[in-house]
Design a protein around this nucleic acid. Structure first.
Lengths: 193, 193
DNA sequence: TAAAATCGTTCACTTAAGTGAAGAAATCGG
DNA sequence: CCGATTTCTTCACTTAAGTGAACGATTTTA
């Protein structure tokens, strides 16, 4: 299990055995059942998640409707907004599948940053990279139609189509479930003709 | 001029006179005329920008049409995607108004990160904060209609309505200029009735 | 300052998304 | 294994965005 984590980290830096042991000693793995709510609207939390296996999602409840805004799968890091904004959470985090996560407290991270410059470098690089990749996603979302977004999703994250209910994908694409259903029928129709 | 920069940085950490002098010695200020293209599609660059005064924007050219995806105004930092992706730029960066920027090379930043742990901490905090704020923006964009996005823009960045041409705002809102024009007329109509 | 380019609005028409309802299919829970 | 819920699709209708064109109004620039 640690191998998956170390393998991920090795993309950014090589770790000494000592450092690996230090990480292991933190005992941060957690198994989470499908349906578990990790964070509720209004709550505050200091926990960040790294997905080793499975899928978690964030969603808002607006006028009684769930609006899914992100899916986190293998090798993704989720740091709840409320940790940065220091305000109660505006959204929910829930577990879409039985998952294995690492859970790290922001105090632990601050401590690690203080003690290991290399850890801080890793965090800086990771968040700079995430920021840019997300900007690219946002740009793409802004500049394309729902249909293009859907076709793009098929290319970029085909696994989501298999593991996520359609109505959750719909709000992720910025439309209603009925529209996604219609849009899919339209695409199928056009590819036939 | 340095005061504006130091004032910004003081939100994150206090700087010693030595550190301030070090920054001054880098000589990174640059005055840029309206209309100047700072980066072209296909080019690579190592320069990042901090806006002290003025406004710059990023835009893609898709099917011959400009699609504006971001505006950077006072106290905003723009790190071009190509620095992180290490690929040619997919978009343009252009100067909307006569502006005063700081221009920093990514080699300089890497050097500063190596020499000053505090600088690296600052960069980590800034990019973690930017990442979260941008996620919130993206969530809001996903979960709202063009009209809601426009009303939201009036609240959040009223200055943009004054300083940016409408057709650039339109693509920023994910719609066509004609639709923005109509949408504005509709809002005005409704607020009268 | 005059010609050219850019910009914003409007119009008529087309296309696609939102809405509310209904029903079939799949999944879940006891 | 069966009933209940959830999920997905379809339909008819409404609303809003896309398209192409036209026309002033501004701004640019030569």
């Amino acid at each position: 299990m640690y191998e998956v984590l170390f393998n991920f980290l090795s993309k950014y830096m090589s770790l000494s055995e000592e450092e690996k042991n230090e990480i292991i000693s933190l005992d941060i793995f957690r198994s989470v059942k499908k349906g578990t709510i990790l964070l509720k609207e209004g709550q505050q939390s200091k926990d960040s998640y790294f997905v080793l296996q499975g899928c978690i999602r964030t969603y808002y409840v607006i006028d009684g409707e769930e609006k899914t805004t992100a899916f986190y799968t293998e090798m993704d890091v989720l740091t709840p907004h409320c940790i940065i904004t220091k305000a109660p959470s505006e959204y929910y985090i829930s577990c879409l599948e039985d998952s294995i996560l690492t859970v790290s407290n922001s105090d632990m991270e601050a401590d690690a940053n203080r003690r290991f410059p290399r850890f801080e470098t890793l965090c800086r690089m990771l968040s700079e990279e995430r920021l840019t990749l997300q900007q690219i996603d946002f740009d793409q979302f802004r500049t394309s139609s729902p249909e293009q977004r859907y076709l793009n999703l098929i290319q970029k994250r085909p696994d989501l189509l298999q593991r996520v209910p359609q109505h959750q994908l719909a709000s992720y694409l910025g439309i209603k479930p009925q529209s996604l259903s219609r849009l899919r029928a339209r695409i199928l129709e056009n590819s036939k003709a």
